[in-house]
Amino acid sequence: MTHESELREKYSELLRGFLESRDERCLYDIENISKEFVRANIGPDYILEAHLNTLNEIISETPVDKAVQVYNNASEPIFNLMVAYATAYHDYIAMTEERYLREKRLADELNDANRNQEMFISIMSHDIRNPLSAVVGYSGLIQKRSKDNEKIKRFAEKIEKTAMEIDRMIESIRTYSRVKKGISEEDFDEIDLKTTLSEIFEFLDEKIQVHGTKIEKRYRTDGEYMVLGTEFLKNAYLNIIDNAIKYSPKNSMISITLDDAETDWKFGVADHGDGISNEMKEAVFERFTRNDKRGIKGSGIGLAITKHAIESHGGKVWIADNPGGGCIFYITVPKA
């Protein structure tokens, strides 16, 4: 039985009860049920119909000489219902308005905060990058002009490298803010994950050589791995692979897998680094959290960007332990 017909049935019973006994208790229960009608969003016309139908049934079972009396008595319960209904409805409207205003106020505040944050990031990145380019430029000049003074040359090189590092951090903060803002629909395109991975390995080739990393690829099929993706998604895969190389010992092996997982393509990268403890497995995806690694450069928001980017594509990213030591990063993205 639906809630609607259940309430209707209940009211009919109470009406019958009242007409038989004239018990005040029935009126009190009718008053309570009227609040249920408001909560269930059942209109007064529907209730009136239920009232008249029940009343007609009762009248048809009543001797003619008593029918008028029954009819008169029946006005009291319906008055009770309507007054209580109206009072509860008035409350309901006031509550809804109050809630609407509160939610609107919160939404406005949130919009303001987001706008301020975006503005802050764009001003900050612009204002810091300008002087930074001067630092890079002049340290280049110092290196050129310092001729034989190797020490000064080395210092200037350090300054230049550090400035470039700051520049990269600003870039990733900007990317983070853009990914958070959301990716627009026009940015999506059908991409093949296998092609994307080849491009990534080409891009990282020098790093792989320097690090002596060996890459093992195990793809489930030779065919295509199509997904609906954007540049942000490609960067997410790049970031995860780049991390695996960065955090692995030199000359170690990294295994890349691409698997069919029903509606998704499942990508995995297994490294032989120090691994990530269980309590850090989710925390590393938060901003500015880094699995403690001295001497490794990074802004600490790379994985936060990665996670947001993957989730904006309806995907998931998580970490598991590598049975052979180290960890495995998995990414699933729905098939196109």
Partner: peptide, 13 residues
């Protein structure tokens, strides 16, 4: 105030 309830749910209050 209209719309305020601490008892939870509707009540003419």
């Amino acid at each position: 105030t209209d719309g305020h309830t601490t008892g939870g749910g509707l009540g003419a209050g």
